[in-house]
């Protein structure tokens, strides 16, 4: 209950601040209205949470294979469910951001856009596999294995590929991240951005804990009704 209030107040403060302060992009550098760049405050934290969920589910998958404790399967599944949600939102806000930066909603040479898309493909594969297996033990086991394989493939795609593939080079270099990859933001922008990052992370863990509790209670109820 306390968390609900803290997250509500924090999120509200971030939203208000994001729209009351000046846009993080100088109007001179912008392709469209500079106000659009406020989406940066929300897009990056969403993408961060989606990746966090992915890493979390991989960690729980490894733990599941080590212990065979179904609790970790539930945790990996929940992290993946939330991951899909945030990845979809991040993809939508990301393409709006991209439209304003390069004039296109979608660009196959932008490594971050492509990675979010592949992340969605991976989630799709994960859920397709789960729904194709009836036995809960087998399902938990096999989806843990595929999670780990996916995670290694994703590491290749996100960290190794851009170094090789020269076309993968664009990113928003004008205002927020400069050519050397350093973040150049004013103090206000930085404060709003990092509060938003913290609030989205808190929001994620709050939903995550609630979902775990629901899953646990559902399982308990099913056991009792037998």
């Amino acid at each position: 209950m306390l968390w609900k209030i803290i997250i509500f107040l924090g999120m509200s403060a971030v939203i208000v601040a994001a729209f009351l302060t000046a846009s993080p992009m100088r109007a001179a550098n912008s392709l469209g209205p500079a106000d659009v760049y406020r989406i940066f405050y929300f897009h990056v934290p969403q993408a961060w949470v989606a990746s966090l969920a992915f890493v979390l589910s991989m960690i729980y998958s490894i733990r599941f294979l080590r212990t065979r404790n179904m609790k970790y399967d539930t945790k990996a599944l929940t992290a993946n469910k939330l991951g899909v949600m945030f990845a979809i939102v991040a993809m939508v806000t990301g393409s709006i951001f991209a439209k304003m930066t390069w004039g296109e909603f979608w660009n196959w040479s932008e490594v971050r856009e492509v990675s979010v898309f592949i992340l969605l493909l991976i989630y799709g594969g994960y859920f397709a596999l789960r729904s194709a297996i009836a036995d809960p033990d087998t399902r938990a086991n096999l989806s843990a294995v595929i999670s780990i394989i996916f995670a290694v493939a994703a590491l290749f795609l996100i960290f190794v590929l851009p170094r090789i593939y020269s076309a993968f080079s664009q990113h928003p270099s004008d205002s927020i991240i400069d050519k050397s990859g350093q973040i150049t933001m004013g103090l206000t922008v930085r404060m709003i951005f990092f509060s938003s990052l913290i609030m989205f992370t808190a929001l994620f863990f709050w939903i995550y804990n609630l979902s775990i509790r629901v899953a646990r209670l559902t399982a308990k109820k099913m056991l009792e009704s037998k």
Partner: peptide, 9 residues
């Protein structure tokens, strides 16, 4: 569906 993301790199 499972092979494609793994084989992409």
């Amino acid at each position: 569906v499972l092979s494609f993301p793994v084989l992409l790199p």
